[in-house]
């Protein structure tokens, strides 16, 4: 899911970096010090999700779960994902510093968008909750892959076929992300609904 350094063109790098800075700024602004601990822990959890490999067909993929983070944190997911991506760059050299803007936008943008749009559905019936969960996982992954392909295509028109190949290869992953997010959402609804801000937390 990460684009490595050295691939994207300067305008794409610059444009996505500006958008990522803006998104992070909004996310940080909406974050007060009472919630910051929760966001850091979820950022770490998001990082751990990327270490979980689930089988798919003959191989396996690692989870991303951006949509889930978006549902839980809303705008706060933006800085949380940026931080997790930075840590991944440090630990595993996935992505990098210069391309952090592009990767951040590709993953955090759809996550926040899906989270904000689908969160109201969580207040509905069980079926609606499941749908919201599936859509959050599926759509955030879909738009992430679309943005990734778009970033490649905008960098160089010759990337068109490679970009569509990447997009197509992500379809099974989208379904797995959708299913896992759906199951996690129904699990959280039963176990601790305040994580999804469905009830007020007992403070």
């Amino acid at each position: 899911m990460h684009i490595s350094e050295g691939i994207l063109s300067t305008p794409v790098l610059a444009g996505s970096a500006v958008l990522t800075v803006m998104g992070t700024a909004v996310g940080l602004k909406k974050l007060d010090y009472d919630r910051i601990m929760t966001v850091s822990l979820l950022s770490a959890t998001f990082f751990v999700a990327s270490l979980i490999h689930v089988p798919i067909g003959p191989g396996s993929v690692h989870l991303l779960l951006g949509g889930l983070l978006g549902l839980i944190l809303g705008w706060g997911a933006f800085p949380a994902i940026i931080v997790a991506l930075f840590l991944q760059a440090i630990f595993f050299q996935y992505g990098g510093i210069i391309v952090l803007g592009a990767n951040g936008l590709n993953i955090a943008g759809p996550a926040v968008l899906c989270g904000l749009l689908l969160h109201p559905m969580l207040l509905g019936t069980r079926k609606q909750q499941m749908t919201a969960g599936f859509l959050a996982g599926f759509c955030s992954m879909f738009f992430s892959a679309l943005l990734m392909a778009g970033a490649l295509f905008l960098s160089d028109q010759g990337f068109l076929k490679v970009a569509s190949l990447i997009l197509a290869s992500h379809f099974p992953v989208m379904i797995v992300e959708g299913l896992i997010t759906m199951f996690v959402v129904t699990f959280l609804v039963r176990v601790q609904p305040e994580i999804l801000s469905l009830t007020t937390s007992p403070q």
Binding site: L42, T45, V48, A49, I52, V54, L63, L65, I72, L179, I180, T181, M182, F183, V184, F187, L188, V191, I195
Partner: peptide, 9 residues
């Protein structure tokens, strides 16, 4: 896996 991750959350 979802429940494992949900519990971690």
């Amino acid at each position: 896996y979802s429940h494992l991750f949900g519990m971690t959350l």
